[in-house]
Amino acid sequence: MLGIENINVGYDGTAVLHAINAQFQPGTLTALVGPNGTGKSSLLKAMAGLIPSKGAVKLGDTPMTNSERLKTIAYMPQDTGAQSSLTVLEVVLLGRLRSLGLRVGDDIKAQAVTALERFRLQAFQDRAIGALSGGQRQLVFLAQSLFRSPDVLLLDEPTAALDLRHQLIVLERIVETCHASGMIAVAAMHDLTLAARFADRIIFLHDGQVAADGPPAKVLTPAILEQVYRVAAEVQPGPSGALHVSPVRALDSIGAG
C-alpha cells in the first residue's frame, strides 16, 4: 500500500498543496481530478520525488527517500519527445536506464519488444519517436513506464490530446496491468466520464486540498461538481453502466471568483 501524509508543496513562497493525505491500494487505479491549476501535476511530481515537498510518502509503513521513490515509482509526464530522433526501441529501453550498460543484451531487448507488442507497436521499433503521432508517442511512453515494472505508476493526463480509440487503449492497458501485477496507478485526468469508467476511486482536488475522495459512484455527484468546478452538471449511468458526466453550464463567469 502507498500512503502520502501531509504533503505540502509551494512555489516561490506560494503554497500550492496543503496537507494532502491519501492511501492507495495495490491493483487499483485512482483518478486525480480537479480544475486547472489546482495542484494535480504538483502532487504527482511531489509523490515521485521530482519536486521539493514537505510530508511523507510511504510504501507500507516505511517512509521512502527521494532516491527510493525514483526507483520504485514511475512518473509519466505529459507528451514530450516530438523533436527527438531516438528510436521507439531506444525510448522503451530507457525505462530501465539504471540497468543499461555499454552493451545491451538480447534478453533485455527482447523484453522491450514484448513491452511494445502489448501496444502493437513492435513494427515501429526502429522509427524515430518524433515521427509518430501524439497518440502513438503516448503509447510508447506508457510501454516505457510499464517496462520498468514499477510498483507505482503516476500519470499526468495520460489521455490528453489523444483520440477516442487511444484514450481507451491507454486506460485499458493501465487497468489490465494494475489487475495483473498489483501495480498502484494514480492518474491526473480531466475527463470525468473516463475517470468514472476506469478508475476504482476518484480524488477531487480543489484549491490545493482534497475536496472529495471515494469510489466514482459516491463522489461523482452534481453537488461536488458544483463545489469543485463551479458548474451545473448532470451525472447519469451511461450505456456501459459507468457514470456519465454532462456539464450543463458554468455558474460563474471566468474571473468572477
Binding site: L50, Y75, P77, G81, S84, L86
Partner: peptide, 11 residues
C-alpha cells in the same frame, strides 16, 4: 534528449 522532466522521471 526526451526533455528534462522525462529524464528526471527516469531517475
Amino acid at each position: 534528449r526526451l526533455g528534462d522532466e522525462r529524464a528526471a522521471s527516469l531517475g
